[in-house]
Amino acid sequence: MFKYYPQDADKNIPETPISPEHMRYLKKIRREKIIIRLTQLIILFLAFALWEIFARLRIVDPFITSQPSRIIQTMGNLYREGVLFQHIGVTCLETVIGFLLGTIIGVIAAITLWWSKFLSEVMEPYLVILNSLPKIALGPVFIVWIGAGPVAIIVMTLAISLIVTILEVLSGFLSVDQEKIKLVQIFGGSRFQVLTKVLLPASFPNIINALKVNVGLSWVGVIVGEFLVSKAGLGYLIVYGGQVFKLDLVMTSVVILGMAAAIMYQGVVYLERFLLRKNQRGF
């Protein structure tokens, strides 16, 4: 998943017909893959099955732990009330907006800091402090400034993900070989061309990495934001469920959240593969 460098990809692979040994080897790795997937599924299934059984046998108290059958029931109830997809939609929309804004603003900010050495040196201590500050502490400030609503939630998300994106992309820029930059300059390339011909394509792995980290952080930002202000969304359901002691609602929301986050992360992984393919093997 983290491999960007298909070095020597086909240099060493002769184009001969597949030998029986190679066939056996391929079969072996395919079998290993299947076994790993199966084991993963079994663990998931067992966990839910044990949860259900323990709850039914009252080994644990389902009022506190909830249980899978009740979660499914709760989902059904929410669906019938017509609010299930509304809550999911609100949270996902906020996350996607926060994620996209964080990425775009972060990359632009990184470019600006690279462009102006003066600016980046001036900003350095501020970035360090902002990076180490627990951004959640700013939540109440945003609410007072912006008002309790989706905008405050998105700003919360940005606060959490932006600095990390800037630092990751900037470090990508700074680790590009100076000689590659020199090469572009020798051809008479402008600073802008250095950016587009070398820095951005060379930092592609860093940018993708920032995206992956960002997906996770955006969820954190949105849920924290919803805890603080919202009247809808999965974060709201969790807080509300906790306050009225409806653990079924809390657990249901957490399960849905887990699935949504996994799907979005997978989306970024697919995006990465797509871009890599568009760039051919790249790097």
Binding site: D177, L183, G188, K197, V198, A202, Q280, G282
Partner: peptide, 23 residues
């Protein structure tokens, strides 16, 4: 330069055309 510094994300043809592209 000492190293070829061909860009890994460009084909050989695209690499060869880099200077002209910049100019």
């Amino acid at each position: 330069l000492q190293k070829d510094h061909l860009f890994g994300w460009r084909t050989i043809l695209e690499n060869v055309l880099l200077g002209l592209e910049i100019q």
